[in-house]
């Protein structure tokens, strides 16, 4: 993980400090007066050679020193921290619901091969390959926010936010519905197909035949002998799909004007606000790393061979 973190910082360094013609332009606001630029240049160590700047850069990113936004003139880290909970809320709930629905569908599909469930699982899996997430979002937006206006078209919370605690929670959930649905619809099919295929493989194993011969119920066989054994590969796939989940939530945040890090990155790109772009990209990469780390822990929990 530490290596990957350094790799992420290095990629950041390469992209933001070596790519453009003048690296200064990515850190310094071009509208500042010349003297101020010179001062800041010194402060950021931009007059130093590349390797020293790299060390400084690593130190800055590790300590959360992400610069100041050209647009709002506020520290980028503060702006990101304000938006981070929203992103975690959306991405987390979306990942959980899509996995829950998808895996359940996959289990039912594999227990009833060739049934409607099975066809639905295969169909939704292929569908997930072909339909762009943003198109699902746009359709939901068109139908449930414009055509039948029962959900908000934009935002994370009403303005002004409700003061009462439960009303506040309900309001957030009301805003969350469409973005959450978008990512769930886009992602559950993949899970259904993976689970189905993995389970079908496992269900032909000898120990399943043995279990059947012992007269165990199909339910026990499916969950205790079948599902239990596909958990490790399922978690591997989960870890691999994490960047994809964040990509999906990025574009969903943009569509529904969700006040999160993904939309902030988009705004940074639109306004050519380099510190914001850099900070958001860094934070999203860190989120992916952390999720991967949790997936690793989960893996060791479900696979007894790894447990010490």
């Amino acid at each position: 993980m530490a290596i990957t973190l350094f790799a992420v910082i290095t990629i950041n360094f390469i992209v933001f400090n070596m790519m453009p013609a003048d690296p200064v332009s990515t850190i310094l606001d071009p509208n500042l007066p010349f003297e101020a630029q010179q001062l800041l240049r010194k402060e950021f160590g931009l007059d130093q050679p590349l390797h020293i700047r790299y060390v400084l850069y690593v130190k800055n990113l590790l300590s959360g020193e992400l610069g100041v936004s050209f647009w709002s003139k506020k520290p980028v880290i503060d702006e990101i921290m304000e938006r981070l909970p929203n992103t975690i809320l959306l991405t987390g709930t979306a990942a959980l619901t899509s996995m829950f629905i998808g895996i359940s569908l996959g289990i039912f599909a594999s227990s009833k091969r060739g049934s409607k469930f099975d066809i639905a699982a295969i169909g939704s899996g292929l569908f997930a390959y072909g339909v762009p997430t943003f198109f699902i979002g746009l359709l939901l937006l068109l139908v449930f926010a414009y055509l039948i206006p029962i959900f908000p078209t934009a935002g994370t919370i009403s303005r002004p936010p409700p003061t009462e605690f439960f009303a506040h929670i309900l309001d957030v959930l009301w805003h969350l519905t469409l973005p959450l649905l978008t990512i769930t619809i886009a992602a559950f099919g993949g899970w259904a197909l993976y689970t189905r295929n993995l389970l079908l493989d496992v269900l032909t194993e000898d120990y399943i035949v043995t279990a059947r011969a012992k007269g165990l119920s199909e339910r026990t066989i499916l969950f205790k002998h079948g599902f239990r054994n596909i958990l490790p590969p399922l978690i591997t796939i989960m870890a691999l799909s994490i960047p994809g989940i964040f990509t999906g939530s990025l574009i969903t945040e943009v569509i529904f004007s969700w006040h999160g890090v993904g939309r902030f990155l988009f705004e940074g790109v639109m306004r050519v606000d380099y510190p914001v772009m850099q900070g958001c990209f860094y934070i999203i990469a860190i989120l992916v790393l952390l999720s991967n780390f949790f997936a690793d822990i989960l893996y060791s929990l479900v696979d007894p061979r790894i447990r010490r």
Partner: peptide, 17 residues
Amino acid sequence: ILLSIPGLALLMVLVTF
């Protein structure tokens, strides 16, 4: 390492550059 980077975010940044 490359697999654990959210591709769209990197693409957005690189395309602007």
